[in-house]
Amino acid sequence: MNIRDLATPSFLLDLDVFEANLRDMAAMCGRAGVELWPMVKTHKSTVIARWQKEAGAAGFLTGTLDEAEQLAAAGFADLTLAYPVAGRANIDRIIALARRARITVSLDGIAAARALAAALAGAGLEIDYLIIIDSGLHRFGVPPHQAAELAAALSGYKKLRLRGVATHPGQVYGAGDREGVAAAAAAEVAALAQAREVLLSHGFAVDTVAAGSTPTAAAAAASGVVTALRPGNYVFYDNTQVALGVVPPARCALAVLATVLSRPRPDTLIIDAGSKCLGLDKGAHGSSLLAGFGLVAGHPELTVAGLSEEVGRVAITGETGLDVGDKLAVIPNHACAAANLTGWLIGHRQGNTECAIPIDMRGNSRLPATF
């Protein structure tokens, strides 16, 4: 079937572009001698994770326990949790995960570590951890110069083994130009280098220095500091990456196919894809570079100017050949958020459908075991 014959809205994955994205990132990591640990929150699909593994991924970074559990159930053995975990129910899930996979947790304070260490002691298990370093996003993490202080405080918990440090330079998504991207990459590398040196100078071993964001991936890989690269968005890319100058639109593999439902005014089209497909997103941490709510592929005269839940308003500048009944493809501003809004991606090559790819790691997609 041709994608133009699909019912809409449909989430499309251009397999040729997608596979090239996988190969390129893996090859870059190979040349730099760093391990590739993709962040799976971008796609939330065990099928895509398997393709990443086949392309050279050493392990996976997860944003949720749901993702980690699904990957472990699918046989993936090396997993890192990106964020601290708190609360007895969630800690119990880590214990269960640690019994069937090599789990590394991420910590930035004592309280979460104390509760986890107590649970590990009760279960007779040990687990590796990374110290989260704040490299400018000011979300999780400790300043680089405090890495050894935290490591010393955590050294009393014998069931926790320090593996290294990690950071996410999410502030890059607020950059206004390529210079801003370069500045975020420099801050990422500098913070990790300082944290590593502080730890080493205090006698702590640092086996892993992990970094991750798609815009800064090339600089991080080439830094000589990073040992594990953890980008996520690169599998799809999106309008934010285009706006930042990371890739051209032709490298964006994910798009939402929509049909024009109405042309109520000469300068307006209404399509059957709204915020429940594209998201009301202006980038992961906000970007002034984005003019609308997605990029209409091949139609520079169109701007996705507004979204209701199930329909979108597309503004026309000048002339367009599109009218009611025609279909268009919208590259989301934020592919990670958009992919979370569907249960399936339709894989195609040159417009011919080839497969359906389940998005099977979305949060709360399964009932807890107690029900």
Rank of each mutant, 00 (worst) to 15 (best):
A7L: 13
S10Q: 10
L12W: 01
V17R: 01
F18P: 05
A20L: 08
R23A: 10
G30R: 10
V34L: 06
L36S: 02
P38W: 10
K41H: 10
V47Y: 13
W51D: 09
K53N: 10
A55P: 00
T62K: 01
T62R: 02
G63Q: 09
T64K: 08
A68Q: 02
A68L: 06
A68P: 04
A68S: 09
Q70W: 13
A77W: 13
Y83P: 00
R88N: 08
D92S: 11
D92K: 13
A96H: 02
A98N: 14
R99Y: 11
S106G: 00
G109I: 00
I110L: 15
I110C: 09
A123R: 06
I127K: 03
D128M: 06
Y129Q: 07
L130I: 04
I132H: 11
L137N: 14
H138N: 15
A151T: 11
L154I: 07
G174W: 07
G174Y: 11
D177G: 09
A184P: 00
G212I: 02
A222M: 13
V225K: 08
V226T: 03
L229K: 01
V235A: 09
N239S: 14
V247N: 05
L254R: 00
A255K: 08
V256Y: 05
L261H: 01
T268I: 12
L269E: 05
I271H: 01
D272W: 02
S275V: 04
K276E: 14
L280R: 13
K282R: 14
A284E: 02
L302F: 02
G312M: 00
I316W: 02
G318D: 03
D326L: 06
D326A: 12
N333E: 03
L345W: 09
G347K: 08
N352G: 12
T353Q: 05
C355H: 04
P358L: 09
T370Q: 15
T370L: 14
